[in-house]
Amino acid sequence: MAAGSWDPTSLPIRPGIYINFVEVALAQITGGARGIVGIPLFEYGTAEAGKFYTFENEREATDVLGTQYNDVVIRALQGGAKEVLVYTVPTNADSEQQYIDMRDAFEARQFNVFVYADEVSATEQDNTLAWCKRNREEGKHFMVIFGGSTADDQDPTVGNARSIRLMDDYAVNLITGVVLSDGSELNSSQYASYIAGLIAGTPINKSITYEVLPVVDVTRRLRNSEINAALISGSLVLVNDGRKVKVEQGIVTNSNESKRKKIRNIRARQAVATDIPATACDNYIGKIDNNDDGQAALISAIKAYLETLETNNVLTDLYVGLDKQRPSVGDSVFLEVSYTEIDSMERIFLTINI
Rank of each mutant, 00 (worst) to 15 (best):
A3Q: 06
L11D: 01
R14W: 14
I17A: 03
N20L: 11
F21N: 15
A25G: 13
A25M: 14
T30H: 01
I36P: 02
V37Y: 09
V37H: 01
I39M: 03
I39P: 00
P40I: 05
T46I: 07
K51E: 14
E58M: 10
L65D: 09
Y69N: 06
D71F: 13
A81H: 05
K82S: 09
E83M: 12
S95H: 11
Y99M: 13
F106L: 09
F106W: 11
N112E: 06
F114D: 01
S121P: 11
N127W: 07
A130S: 09
R136Y: 09
M143G: 05
M143T: 02
V144R: 05
F146N: 02
F146A: 00
G147F: 10
G147P: 12
T150A: 14
D152A: 09
L166P: 00
V172R: 08
S188F: 11
S189A: 15
A192F: 04
A192V: 14
G201Q: 03
P203W: 11
I204N: 01
S207D: 05
T209G: 06
V212L: 03
P214E: 06
P214A: 14
V218E: 08
R220E: 14
S225I: 12
E226H: 06
A229G: 02
A230L: 10
I232E: 05
S233Q: 11
L238A: 14
N240W: 11
R243Y: 12
K244S: 09
K246Q: 14
G250P: 00
N254I: 12
R267D: 02
A271H: 03
A278V: 02
T279Q: 08
C281L: 07
I285A: 03
N290D: 03
N290H: 10
G294I: 02
L298V: 04
S300Y: 06
I302L: 00
A304S: 11
L306F: 08
T308M: 03
L309F: 00
T311D: 01
N313W: 06
T316Q: 07
L318I: 04
K324Q: 15
S328M: 04
V329L: 05
G330F: 01
G330T: 10
V333N: 01
F334Y: 12
E336M: 09
I342D: 01
L350V: 07
I352D: 10
